[in-house]
Nucleic acid binder design. Sequence first.
DNA 1: CGGTCTCTTGACGGAGTTCAAAGCTAGTGG
DNA 2: CCACTAGCTTTGAACTCCGTCAAGAGACCG
Lengths: 192, 192
Amino acid sequence: MNIDNPIASEIFEGLSFTNQEYHLIAAKFEQINLKKGEMLIHTKDIVYNQYYVHSGCLRAYFIDDSGKEHTVQFAIKDWWITDFTAFFTTSKALMNIECIQDAIVYKISQNNTEHLYVEIPKIETYIRKKMEKRFAAFQKRILSSLSQSAKERYKSFLNTYPGIERNVKNYHIASYLGITAESLSRIRKEFT
Amino acid sequence: MNIDNPIASEIFEGLSFTNQEYHLIAAKFEQINLKKGEMLIHTKDIVYNQYYVHSGCLRAYFIDDSGKEHTVQFAIKDWWITDFTAFFTTSKALMNIECIQDAIVYKISQNNTEHLYVEIPKIETYIRKKMEKRFAAFQKRILSSLSQSAKERYKSFLNTYPGIERNVKNYHIASYLGITAESLSRIRKEFT
DNA sequence: CGGTCTCTTGACGGAGTTCAAAGCTAGTGG
DNA sequence: CCACTAGCTTTGAACTCCGTCAAGAGACCG
């Protein structure tokens, strides 16, 4: 951990940088403190930024035509969050992102992300590898939604986000699993 | 289209290369011709390679504990396919990949992929951007499995893979949508 | 301590599954 | 080129899991 630039050391853990590089990195991130309930992204916002989660918890959710919420992702420490579809194409968000436990996040814009990749190529490699892992995790989630019952998906969820029950409302978890809060309640009853 | 190296021009469409770079690229890919029914990857194989689809059609599927098949991905022209989870970590495949229409694919190993990224950094950038698109597409698929009925998912599927009905068995599509072949049959009946 | 948000419980309904059988279709060999 | 067969698709009937609606119990916060 480099005391001069804890942000760079935290976000790109394992990489080492020159002082000049630390400078380049630090200049591109902005710290944002969020209170529970605050919104980071609203539907229809143009998405210029992505966010690295230092602490706290956020969730990305989608509201369908019938008004129902569907949680696509939770983000806890060391996760990145944004509406990636909108971010990658700098277009309008289809999702909302809200803070569900007081959080500190580091914001970086799309432009600055691309600049960083050019200025410090090992960051592009680092992020690519991280994305490969996320990619694999997504594939796993699709598999689980195809092949598992609600009860099994709930078990998998507890493994993916250990200890998250303490931070997150059950109806948020239900909307992540693709079931209703009532069904989750019945599943939880069977568990004990 | 560079006549000296059609493979590089096809796979990295839009990028231009020096003759030396064309050489580097061509040396890393190997063309494989597949007949319908051939398997590219079996469960438990160590996955060293990924494949760029030049023509034909393949599918990646998972067999769950009860023996049921679940199609995770179809790949047609200009898609990449492999068991990405296993490929990124050079570990054992959980999925099977089979050819469902005679195909020509270009194979590249994990090592050669990494070498290519180092030797020609713009390829790393190119692939990263492509992956960002896939990432967004995955997110969309998760959303659709959470928020849409089987009938709506079938419509989305037809948009994602236009014209694929001609190549693919209905029970493969059903297993991609997460429903039974019987249910898909009933849905299709309503459509006409 | 009162009000609102969250979780639980019950009764009913519907989308999709399962199992079984019949109808098609495409590929193979005579 | 036709006939046969194996694989694929359709159809029907009963069943199951989960959703919906509604009401009550509990928890948290000012």
